[in-house]
């Protein structure tokens, strides 16, 4: 049984200002087996975050269905953990309270929450920062707290929306390594949105290359590279070349199609 199933998803955004409908996602079907690590790879505006938000339950598809663990998604919930681009920590709570926020909602006693949080704080390597407040943390540390918070839900599915995009190169590499280790240990399913080809190839067991406007799955690539992944190796570079070619073709085609329209738009802009 597939852990996550997207069937014939379409999404139309209504552009109220211009009285026009915009087809953002066109007939996307994806199924993610348990314990897979799927990377949704695409440029900005291709609808990859929208797809993730549909799995999270923040947005509803215009057509098609989303199921997680066989159940249709009808809103956000604790059966799926989400890590956002910004860590989104409660600034008034110390690190350990943020990690154990879910247990606070469930009405656990303070001592129990504190004890439960520690396991996940250790897992993401934040020992010694339990009582720090988010304002006192670096970007990388904040994201670790966000990951620990998602892990504490012990979800079968973790959704990640470019969680490392705002980090410096070194921190990003460390975090990617740790994420893979956690994923191997927890045996959960991860859907990871990124615009970085390298990141997708370092992390994923599968990479879905998405096209832009409307968003479609251009190609679903299975990666059976050994871990840790050698980013200078032959196989890695073959995949990278292939994906970059796909993206380039896509870009050229789009420019060709977009040209008359965009020229008209720029003329309008000049007239205004």
């Amino acid at each position: 049984m597939a852990s996550i199933e997207l069937k014939n998803i379409t999404k139309i955004f209504r552009d109220a200002k211009r009285k026009r409908d915009l087809l953002a996602i066109d007939d996307v079907s994806l199924s993610v087996e348990p314990n897979q690590f799927l990377c949704l790879l695409g440029s900005s505006g291709c609808g990859k975050s929208t797809l993730l938000n549909m799995i999270a339950g923040f947005e509803k598809p215009t057509g098609g269905s989303v199921t997680v663990g066989g159940k249709p998604v009808d809103g956000p919930g604790a059966d799926r953990g989400m890590v956002f681009q910004q860590a989104n920590l409660m600034p008034w709570l110390p690190v350990w309270e943020n990690v154990a926020f879910h247990l606070r909602l469930k009405g656990w006693r303070k001592a129990d929450r504190r004890a439960a949080a520690q396991e996940y704080i250790d897992m993401v390597g934040l020992q010694g920062f339990e009582n720090h407040f988010p304002a006192e943390l670096s970007g990388g540390m904040s994201q670790r707290v966000g990951i620990a918070r998602a892990l504490l839900l012990n979800p079968q599915v973790i959704l990640m929306d470019e969680p490392f995009a705002a980090l410096d190169a070194q921190t990003k590499m460390d975090m990617q390594e740790e994420l893979v280790a956690i994923w191997q240990k927890q045996r959960c399913t991860i859907v990871f949105v990124t615009h970085s080809v390298d990141e997708a190839l370092v992390l994923g067991t599968q990479v879905a290359v998405l096209t832009s406007r409307p968003g479609r799955v251009r190609e679903l690539i299975d990666l059976d590279l050994p871990r840790p992944r050698d980013i200078t190796g032959q196989q890695f570079n073959d995949h990278k070349r292939h994906i970059l070619n796909l993206i380039r073709e896509e870009g050229m085609q789009q420019r060709k199609e977009a040209k008359p329209d965009s020229m008209a738009a720029s003329r309008q802009g000049a007239a205004a």
């Binding site: 956002f84 989104n88 409660m90 926020f101 839900l153």
Partner: peptide
């Protein structure tokens, strides 16, 4: 975003 994060944790 904080409200979304909390909603995701089942609030």
């Amino acid at each position: 975003n904080l409200i979304r994060a909390a909603a995701m944790m089942g609030a």
